[in-house]
């Protein structure tokens, strides 16, 4: 286990050290101490290393992650795992706005609650939130799965495309063009796998599925008020 003291050694040193492991390393386990809410911790990683952040982080923790597993033993600021491509990011606490924004792949797990716009513009990432999520989540979500074990706030899935949204609790309101959809066996399979990997004991059968009604895919004047 390698330990990096962020307060003592600075952000640039942390990211360049972790990024140096891109392309092969035997130093696979890292611990970051004294994060103190710093921004851009463990961004741009591209190797199958394990990074544990001992505390809470600021904006964009694990941004654009590839391959690495980043675990935050605290809460995260806005844009955790933004544009993640692959790998895993696990947040033990809560997440601020835009968690997993525009992510293309990999798995983001939030053990607490996620704030507004979680999964905004997601492009293939899987996100599992153990708690609740705020308003405008999965706005313009293109692809991937958003799983919410608690409740969802206002305007879930507004203007979403092909992303699948699964919510166990209540949904305060659905956004434009987002509807409840039939839960088919293949969806139960997807959910089962994601819940298992995210360490949740929720049952897939307890969830409802939401997604795009595909009514706004091509402009139609009769839908003008929905745009």
């Amino acid at each position: 286990m390698q330990t990096y003291d962020l307060e003592a050694n600075g952000l640039r040193g942390l990211n360049s050290t972790l990024q140096e492991q891109n392309g092969g390393t035997n130093k696979t386990a890292w611990e970051v101490v004294n994060p103190k809410g710093s921004h851009a911790i463990a961004v741009g990683l591209d190797s199958p290393i394990d990074v544990t952040v001992k505390g809470s982080t600021g904006y964009y923790c694990a941004g654009m992650n590839q391959q690495a597993t980043v675990r935050v033993e605290g809460s995260v600021g806005p844009g955790v795992a933004e544009n993640m491509m692959s790998g895993q990011v696990i947040v033990e606490g809560d997440a601020s706005q835009y968690a997993g924004a525009t992510g293309h792949g990999g798995l983001l797990v939030i053990k607490g609650n996620a704030s507004s716009r979680c999964g905004i513009s997601m492009k293939g990432i899987d996100i599992v939130v153990h708690g609740n999520i705020g308003h405008m989540c999965a706005f313009m979500a293109q692809a991937g799965n958003l799983v919410v074990c608690g409740d969802a706030g206002d305007a879930l899935g507004d203007s979403c495309y092909e992303a699948r949204l699964f919510v166990r609790g209540s949904v305060k309101s659905l956004g434009a063009d987002c509807i409840e959809k039939e839960m088919r066996p293949e969806h139960i399979e997807i959910l089962k796998d994601l819940l298992e990997r995210a360490g949740s004991d929720a049952k897939p059968e307890e969830f409802k599925r939401y997604g795009s009604a595909r009514q706004l895919y091509n402009f139609d004047v009769d839908n003008a008020q929905a745009y």
Binding site: R12, A40, G58, Y59, Y60, P78, E82, I120, M140
Partner: peptide
């Protein structure tokens, strides 16, 4: 979209630029 999905305003932009620099090694 007309605005960025994960930042609004100049203070956020500063942090976004920091992140991009950290990813690309300045």
């Amino acid at each position: 979209a007309c605005r960025h999905p994960d930042w609004t305003g100049p203070d956020d932009l500063e942090i976004k630029i920091l992140e991009l620099r950290e990813i690309t090694d300045w």
